[in-house]
Design a protein around this nucleic acid. Structure first.
Lengths: 341, 341
DNA sequence: TTGAAAGCGCTAACAC
DNA sequence: GTGTTAGCGCTTTCAA
């Protein structure tokens, strides 16, 4: 049988209340009894039962992460950060992977609603309707890689990141710079285009309409290898009128673009320089210069913010914007820095 | 306040026992009262409290997955399978990511020991000592991508997989076939070498000692991009005496090997054909022919087995071996099949 | 400082 | 069939 506080209490000749106090670091326990209880507990290999504790405290000591399963590398990195922050606090992570937005509702019902977790982290998704509206769910939650004015959110500054990427290409001497974009219906895609245009204008560089090509695909909002390859082919057809460098709205697309380039026998970076966005795992293998999102940090901050929200449910929504960081590899044509990755 | 069975009972004019029975699909409830209770519950938006239920039933309805964080793509795929199986059973997934084996002990203590989960899935790791020995932990558990005779285990047949990969190269006409291996201290590496040798011998093909090169690195047992590049360089130095095709013990290494090839200006597959192992996400981008592990299926089966174990703690340990499947892309020099991936 | 007792929301054994 | 009651293992008043 499981060892309970009753066993400890009996052996240590104290009441169960005292045992409980010891395990909750309650100040009003004398040093002597505290020591005695601790020893007995260790000897009996006692561990508090999380569910009993949760029931009594009305708190589960665990949080829920709702995550789209297709963002593998990104979310694994974020999760690392989440776990790191969580471990310090003796909280558990319940994972709910969703394959499509419909499953989000199910998850909300199955978990948040039922008091399964004290807080929820929503990743890379539109805010579920269960949380909106007047009689909405009141669970603590924070949006990661997403944004909604009514909630705590963490995301990267796409505009600034895209501008920095473009700036890098400009600094390398390129003048005919284009952009290969995902579906502009997607806010991140739109923002990255804005950043690109901003950098170009600030440098008095012309952006011909045919230098900006965006996917119209709706699968994954065009953030796919396929759209990268297709759009790159369109650029290649332009021949000598084509840009000499391209800012690509995501690494996945850049991967497709690189494939198209290789197929056409066009050398990257010599004939076509590329900068991507995201720094997914693949990017380092492809030697792709890109804008890195601080995934670990975002995960860790997400937990901080969630706890903040749990402690103060009525605080005004907070939002944290991260700056993506330029990671220079070879696809942009810049000299590789000495250290490898 | 939270809606409880007492609220339902009062409104529906029944005892709380009846409400409980309704929510547990107990047969001895009349259709009429069942209907009345269900309706009231829905109207009040009632959801049973998992922790209260868990405490009363002495069961948490959740399982723990202990996962090394460095196996990103593999484990995400497996997790998908896990989640799919789990959802059907109304069980939750608690995730515990570990960065090194030391943390495993911590996880075991923090969770299994404390009755945090009804069962544990251990991924790609040596069996933690807490589970071995006479006075060991008696929690239900299954090993995934690992093997121990005393426990339920799921893993792929490395020998057969490696043999199939080698066979494929032979069928394509190669005779001078080598192997680029990880550290042979690692069981999977060893097994893959065995499979390679087996296929070669069965086809009466000579394996010169210098055709087999294994890493001696201890970081990740040599399953890294770096060892792939280094060993490939060793092969290249051999000039015309080098093999025309290589079976590489993992995709990560194959990625490094491809890089070395590109750097040396040697064409793959024309001058050097490659077959990898694992089918990580990267493989499809690199057009790497490889042996795919049925990750999703493994995850889903792992859950099945865990439930089996939970239901019958004394059953004899079961082990399931999966056959990896050849995924033909371009690195082996075979014609691409029509469909893309 | 400490013990006793009530209660967290539920299940399950026991009566009727 | 259905209501009542005694736990599940813990926290947290309330007295002492």
């Amino acid at each position: 049988m499981r060892v309970t506080i009753y066993d400890i209490a009996k052996k240590a000749k104290v009441g169960i209340g005292t045992v409980s106090r010891v395990f909750n670091d309650h100040p009003s326990v004398s040093e002597t009894t505290r020591k005695r209880v601790t020893q007995v507990a260790k000897r009996l290999n006692y561990h508090p039962h999380p569910y009993a504790r949760g029931l009594a405290r009305n708190r589960t000591n665990s949080i829920l992460a709702v995550i789209p399963f297709f963002t593998t590398f990104f979310f694994v990195e974020v999760l690392r950060g989440v776990q790191a922050s969580l471990g310090e606090r003796d909280y558990d992570l319940v994972l709910y992977g969703v394959n499509d937005p419909e499953q989000v509702s199910a998850s909300v019902k199955r978990n948040a609603l039922r008091g399964r977790a004290d807080g929820v982290l929503f990743f890379s998704m539109k805010t579920p309707k269960e949380f909106l509206g007047p009689n909405a769910q009141r669970t603590a939650m924070v949006l990661v890689d997403a944004h909604h004015k009514n909630f705590d959110s963490i995301y990267v500054d796409n505009v600034a990141g895209a501008a920095a990427a473009t700036q890098h290409l400009i600094k390398l001497g390129h003048r005919k710079i284009g952009m290969l974009s995902a579906n502009l219906e997607s806010p991140p895609a739109r923002q990255r285009l804005d950043g690109f245009l901003k950098a170009m204008h600030e440098n008095d560089l012309e952006v011909k309409p045919e230098y900006v090509r965006a996917s119209t695909s709706s699968t994954l909002d065009g953030f796919t290898k396929e759209t990268g390859a297709e759009l790159m082919k369109e650029f290649l057809v332009m021949g000598s009128a084509a840009p000499t460098a391209l800012f690509v709205s995501s690494d996945v697309q850049a991967a497709g673009a690189l494939q198209a380039l290789a197929q056409a026998g066009v050398s990257c970076p010599k004939d076509m320089a590329l900068v991507g966005f995201d720094d997914i795992e693949l990017a380092s293998y492809l030697q792709l210069t890109t804008m890195r999102q601080p995934m670990y940090e975002m995960g860790s901050l997400a937990v901080e913010m969630l706890f903040g929200r749990m402690n103060d449910p009525n605080a005004v929504p907070r939002e944290e914007r991260f700056m993506p960081e330029l990671v220079i590899r070879t696809s942009c044509g810049a000299a590789r820095p000495a250290q490898s990755d």
